[in-house]
């Protein structure tokens, strides 16, 4: 029974790593560039979920101090959320850039198959 309990306690981490594994599978196996890009995005999302869930403590609310009832004791740790914000922004930037590169690649190589695009080798 104990591992069921641990899975319950760290269910978020398990979910995040599951997403990362799926993303990795896509990057490793799929030859289509767009699919690889989607894989990378999946990994980004997985990591972001992992980061956010780091700060979560069971049974505590969001640390918005505007209403009096919220005290630092019963609120979760906000810093990972700040980190996630930057991570998401970076993820967006990279995806946009890689999409434009892929479009240009397609115009040049007329194919999206990554194993075909290897003019520079050895």
């Amino acid at each position: 029974m104990s591992w069921v309990e641990t899975v319950y306690n760290y269910s978020y981490f398990v979910g995040a790593f599951g997403l990362i594994m799926i993303g990795l599978y896509a990057v490793m196996v799929k030859t289509n560039l767009i699919k690889i890009l989607i894989g990378i995005n999946l990994i980004d999302v997985g990591v972001n979920i992992f980061l956010v869930s780091l700060g979560y403590i069971k049974g505590k609310g969001a640390p918005i101090f505007s209403n009096a009832s919220v005290t630092p004791a019963n609120s979760i740790d906000p810093i990972p959320q700040a980190l996630v914000l930057t991570a998401i922004v970076i993820g967006v930037a990279v995806t946009a850039l890689s999409l434009s590169v892929i479009i240009k690649l397609y115009q040049h190589y007329k194919t999206l198959d990554i194993s075909k695009i290897r003019e520079m080798r050895w």
């Binding site: 490793m28 990554i114 290897r118 080798r121």
Partner: peptide, 17 residues
């Protein structure tokens, strides 16, 4: 030896894994 750099991006990803 230089053939290890196969030129295929996916192979490099597999190497990292």
């Amino acid at each position: 030896v230089r053939r290890i750099y196969t030129g295929n991006g996916q192979h490099y990803a597999i190497f990292t894994m």
